[in-house]
């Protein structure tokens, strides 16, 4: 998994195009450092200056990310994935497998665990890091079994009064023959319905890609957060561009138009909170990212557990019911022709 690259603030790994100036600066710093070791000369002042410049440059770039750049950060190959958050913030994880109907879908994992002092049911999507792992996890694109496993575990959590925590990171549900013939639409729909009335608190965090119905299928909860550089959208920017602009190359424009970044989504009322990421994105400091996610989860679980069940469910219903406000015009006088066959 990500362990070799994790926790290394300096080693950038694969730089995104808009990060090129930072990457250059970074290699200059490493050169100076090795030069210092090799020659014994003191470059510490220069190194300190360049490090300060690195930080300010990184901050500036990340404060001004375009929506399309944000999508790329959300898909960054070193970004912490679903299972990485298990390592980062879940203790004593007990994985549970299978939907009891067809198979165990590895695109979605789940099981008991402790976050802080809270016993919870954790459910998440996992894309896989290297090629082999990606194939095993189907790139995080779940089939009906994944959603049905998730529901099975949520029902288990309901029975034992454990809060449910979900980590969302998928480009979408898997568009395949088996997925369709085993009813991926029905599986997602059923989760939406059951999650809306599940008798235990549910906290959801979009950690990377919130890809349409495939994401929503495990993202109906009392509190929904999105990480600062994650995105959540009805369709991928590429998909939207190829339909509306008739070319996937307009993905950047589509990303702007779709308002899919965290601040927009909070403004629109799609999400309740934004979980801040470390300087330069979660991939530069997974520990810090994990800590922030953990704080969000613990704070909300504690608050939600105080509600009476009935109030919890009413509040959940209201929060989903109000998503997507519409204009209410005065009722029209109805022409008779409309109502008569």
């Amino acid at each position: 998994m990500a362990k070799s690259k994790k926790n290394n603030d300096i080693e950038l790994g694969i730089a995104l195009p808009f990060e090129a100036p930072v990457a250059r600066l970074q290699s200059q710093i490493s050169e100076l450092e090795s030069e210092q070791i090799r020659t014994g000369r003191d470059f510490s002042t220069e190194i300190r200056q360049q490090r300060a410049q690195y930080v300010s440059m990184l901050r500036k770039i990340y404060q001004n990310l375009t929506p399309w750049e944000t999508v790329q950060v959300a898909r960054h190959p070193h970004r912490p994935l679903g299972r990485d958050y298990i390592d980062l913030l879940v203790k004593n994880f007990v994985e549970l497998r299978g939907d009891r109907r067809f198979a165990d879908d590895k695109a979605i994992f789940g099981g008991f665990g402790r976050i802080g002092t809270e016993k919870v049911m954790v459910i998440g999507q996992h894309k896989g890091r290297d090629t082999k792992e990606k194939i095993a996890h189907n790139f995080g694109m779940a089939q009906p079994e994944g959603y049905r496993k998730a529901l099975r575990l949520m029902k288990l959590a309901e029975k034992y009064k454990l809060p449910v925590v979900t980590f969302i990171d998928t480009s979408g549900a898997y568009p395949g023959i088996g997925s369709e013939e085993r009813g991926v639409a029905e599986a997602i729909a059923r989760n939406l319905l059951e999650m809306s009335r599940l008798k235990t608190p549910i906290v959801c965090v979009v950690i990377g890609e919130g890809g349409s119905g495939g994401a929503l299928g495990i993202a109906v909860g009392d509190k929904v957060a999105i990480m600062e550089y994650a995105y959540y959208s009805v369709i991928s920017p590429e998909g939207c561009a190829s339909i509306l602009w008739r070319t996937a190359e307009k993905a950047s424009e589509a990303a702007d138009a779709l308002k899919l970044t965290a601040p927009h989504l909070q403004e629109l009322g799609v999400v309740d909170e934004i979980v801040l990421e470390p300087l330069g994105g979660a991939h530069r400091n997974p520990q810090e990212a994990g800590h922030n996610v953990e704080q969000f989860i613990i704070r909300n679980i504690r608050a939600l557990k105080r509600f009476k069940l009935e109030n919890l469910l009413d509040k959940r219903y209201e929060s989903w019911r109000k998503k997507g406000a519409v204009l209410e015009n005065p009722p029209k006088a109805k022409p008779q022709s409309k109502t008569i066959a």
């Binding site: 939406l192 349409s212 629109l268 997507g324």
Partner: peptide
Amino acid sequence: GALSLMQMA
């Protein structure tokens, strides 16, 4: 956008 998606839920 995502508000359309929310109508599913």
